[in-house]
């Protein structure tokens, strides 16, 4: 059992690392009250997935995927360029999400004067109770 586990972990440590990061990110997203921390958690979660993708393309004795004769002659193989292509796209998507999220947080801060989620919800509820109708 222990041998199996160590073999499994040592041969796929890339995957275990990304599991760990994913769980850290996921925890931050749900458990943290601060909106900025939530966004940080989301970024960690996304980055963990990116790491998983990139590690799918790794080849032992692999070199950067740029055509060069001498590297091949020395016995190196190219790493898989496809995950790089996909992740370049996905990173941009993550950047875009983060930008929108940050601008939302700025607006929320202007509106309610706080970036704690519970306080914002409390403020909304108080406003609804005052006006006896939804605060829109």
């Amino acid at each position: 059992m222990v041998e199996w586990l160590t073999a499994e972990i040592s041969s796929k440590y890339n995957y275990w690392v990304s599991i760990l990061l994913m769980l850290i990110g996921f925890y931050a997203i749900i458990a943290k009250d601060n909106l900025i921390k939530k966004i940080i958690g989301l970024s960690i979660f996304q980055t963990a997935i990116f790491l998983f993708y990139i590690s799918l393309g790794v080849v032992r004795k692999g070199t950067a995927p740029i055509v060069s004769e001498e590297m091949i002659l020395k016995g190196y193989a190219y790493v898989n360029p496809l995950p790089h292509v996909l992740i370049l796209t996905a990173i941009v998507v993550a950047v875009a999400t983060t930008a929108v999220a940050l601008s939302l947080i700025i607006r929320l801060y202007e509106e309610y004067g706080t970036i704690e989620e519970t306080e914002i919800i409390g403020a909304i509820k108080r406003k609804e109770a005052d006006q006896d109708r939804p605060a829109f």
């Binding site: 989301l42 979660f45 999220a101 607006r107 929320l108 509106e111 919800i121 829109f136």
Partner: peptide, 16 residues
Amino acid sequence: KIALKASFTYLILGSI
């Protein structure tokens, strides 16, 4: 206003 909070919740869940 309140739409900001709604949108933020949607952003977090949708991104997940």
